[in-house]
Design a protein around this nucleic acid. Structure first.
Length: 601
RNA sequence: UGCCCGAUGGUGUAAUGGUAGCACAAACGACUCUGACUCGUUUUGUCUAGGUUCGAGUCCUAGUCGGGCAGCCA
């Protein structure tokens, strides 16, 4: 026996992981199965990332699995477009981290009738995740995520069983009357007049509901629990409603659809889920989750529900409805707009999945609703990108600068470091020419205090090149600066006699003759306040400067940058080619984040 | 005036009856061919009141404050 020389650094611990560990220690389960259960009615966002990382994280720490399951019990709001985007987003987020825990099933598979310890059962475990990748690579059409709608037959059978036990009944109350009979949180409800129908009548009516004999809303199947319960979710909650609409995954065979509370716990059971982790608003539903499962004669260990506080990051929104408003009102340009906290938006913006994971894992898991400082997220992204991003020179707002002592055709080769964070950094050559562009804010005719960039008569170093002195400022008729004329001291280049001469400022630049033009999109926070969700009209606090488009000058090496690559434009920030709008020969860059700026503006 | 959940620096969290720690943020300083990175220093905290205990952020009681719950949404 040897001790692991490299135990995982600070393995995360929280109240849910403690429960999982205790369950394992007590041998309540032989393996851990979690699930991530989105409804396919919108795009995944950073809040979902926390849930994904929690569920997949627990699976990977315990050599378990996490099933991706679509909670698709309401066909009127759902669409396969979302199934596809959600599947892609999840796989992107966990790639290289928890792929080996991803629970998928064989395409078209449904729960199989089995027996467990001599008792009848139904079960749909996941495919072995270890072979899933190979399977998907060889034949993508043979595996798919789980769908609650694949359990409709089994769920129907369970409903019949509940009816036979007198634990469910068909209710003829209209939706309005159902509301009235439910009472209020501080006032008990009243029994439905249909609560005491015979088992035979309930069976007959429920079969006829399924057969399509009744219109939408005419009847429902309800659990028979307690109309006076202080917990409103126990006041004979609906199990099935009538909806004469086809289903995007299950097809046209159904006109009754189960509700969340009924479908979710049983879906967990059918898949062999051990720990069903959801957000705080479901705490009140837990007794119902347990009631349904314990009311049926289920032979395998029952899953249990645990709740945690969802992630609420500052300066943004994570409400599907409000996100949809931003998209529909054209405040942003789609679900994958880089300003949105959607996973597709963050990906397009250039945020690495690894940084997103580190962030959502780092905020911790508690039962306390909190507002997470977006600076923590930004710090995490900068930290990852600082390590990984290649450095390049780019000028966002060009100002022409002429080096008067260089000849017009002259080109001085300068060695630039690709990434100083690398242990053995590689280099590239950038050409210094008579005319270059510098950042217009790196010159000030009347410099503010402590300004150590270029000013009349002042000196500054051109990064990777040499020290220059500002000799002359050229202006147009309106008095605006159009050109700076300087002399270059080539003896201060690396390797030359005066290479070590110090000047306070170093600025970036791009050769006017070798540089290329590019559209660069400068993104900023979408909202001007830390908690836009708390504002009456969130559209009033949209940041009018959340996107600025500039025509930038880039060093030539950037001409064939590809989507997926990430760069640091020195002294400016992190940028990535836009995957949607870039064309060969015309790369569009998105700014992921600026560099931290302790000098301020 | 029902039920449920919660409360630790500015923010997010850790401490599982025994030294209140970490990260971010902020401030100052060092370094610097990125005002980045890195490094150093500093500021700020257990909601209140009782109780149990040698000892309480932790356990108990009461209160205060905050959040959730009355979809045929999830």
């Amino acid at each position: 026996m040897s001790v692991d020389p490299n135990p995982p650094a600070s393995a995360p611990s929280d109240f849910i992981r403690d429960i999982v560990a205790a369950d394992l220690a007590a041998r309540r389960h032989t393996g851990i199965v979690t699930r991530f259960p989105p409804e396919p009615n919108g795009y995944l966002h950073i809040g979902h990332a926390k849930s994904i990382c929690l569920n997949f994280g627990i699976a990977r720490e315990n050599h378990g699995r996490c099933n991706l399951r679509f909670d698709d019990t309401n066909p009127v709001k759902e669409d396969t477009e979302y199934v596809d985007s959600i599947t892609a987003d999840v796989r992107w987020l966990i790639a290289g981290w928890a792929d080996h825990c991803l629970g998928f099933k064989a395409k078209g598979a449904k729960p199989a009738a089995t027996t467990h310890e001599g008792r009848p059962d139904a079960h749909l475990p996941s495919l072995d995740p270890a072979t899933l990748d190979a399977r998907l690579a060889a034949s993508p059409a043979t595996a798919e995520p789980f769908f609650a709608s694949d359990y409709f037959d089994q769920l129907y059978a369970y409903a019949l069983a509940l009816i036979r036990q007198g634990k469910a009944y068909v209710c003829d109350l209209s939706p309005e009357d159902t509301d009235l009979y439910r009472g209020a949180p501080d006032r008990p409800g009243r029994d439905s007049p249909w609560r005491n129908r015979s088992v035979e009548e309930n069976l007959d009516l429920f079969r006829r509901m399924k057969a399509g004999e009744f219109p939408n809303g005419a009847r429902s199947l309800r659990a028979r629990i307690d109309m006076a319960s202080p917990n409103v979710w126990l006041r004979d909650p609906l199990l099935y409603r009538i909806r004469h609409v086809p289903h995007h995954h299950a097809g046209a065979g159904w006109c009754i659809y189960p509700l969340y509370d009924y479908a979710h716990c049983l879906s967990d059971y059918l898949e062999g889920v051990t720990h069903s982790i959801c957000t705080l608003e479901f705490v009140d539903h837990r007794p119902l989750y347990d009631w349904i499962l314990s009311s049926l004669d289920l032979p395998r260990p029952l899953p249990h529900q645990y709740e945690f506080a969802k992630l609420t990051p500052g300066y943004t929104l994570v409400s599907k409805r409000k996100l949809l408003t931003l998209v529909n009102e054209k405040i942003v340009q789609g679900w994958d707009d880089p300003r949105l906290p959607t996973l597709s938006g963050l990906r397009r913006r250039g945020v690495p999945a690894s940084a997103l994971r580190r962030f959502v894992i780092g905020v911790g898991v508690t039962k306390f609703d909190s507002l997470t400082d977006i600076a923590v997220f930004e710090h995490t992204v900068r930290d990852e990108l600082n390590q990984a991003a290649q450095r390049r020179l780019a000028v966002l707002r060009p100002l022409r600068l002429v080096l008067t002592n260089l000849a017009p055709g002259e080109s001085v080769a300068c060695l630039a470091t690709n990434n100083p964070q690398d242990e053995h950094p590689s280099t590239r050559t950038v050409p210094l020419t008579r005319e270059v562009f510098i950042e217009s804010e790196d010159f000030a005719e009347v410099p503010p205090p402590k300004y150590f960039r270029l000013k009349p008569g002042g000196e500054v170093r051109l990064k990777y090149a040499c020290i220059i002195r500002c000799e002359e400022v050229v202006k147009d008729a309106a008095g605006a600066v159009t050109e700076i004329r300087c002399t270059a001291d080539l003896s201060t280049r690396a390797g030359e006699a005066n290479a070590d001469r110090k000047v306070k400022g170093t600025i970036h630049w791009v050769s006017a003759t070798h540089g290329v033009d590019a559209e660069v999109r400068l993104y900023d926070r979408l909202f001007t306040v830390p908690e836009p969700a708390a504002v009456e009209d969130f559209l009033k606090v949209v940041n009018p400067k959340s996107l600025e488009v500039v025509n930038a000058k880039l060093e030539a090496a950037l001409a064939d940058a590809r989507p997926g690559e990430r760069y640091q434009f020195e002294r400016l920030g992190y940028f990535t080619p836009d995957a949607r709008d870039s064309r060969p020969g015309r790369t569009v860059f998105n700014r992921t984040l600026t560099l931290k700026d302790t000098w301020g503006k």
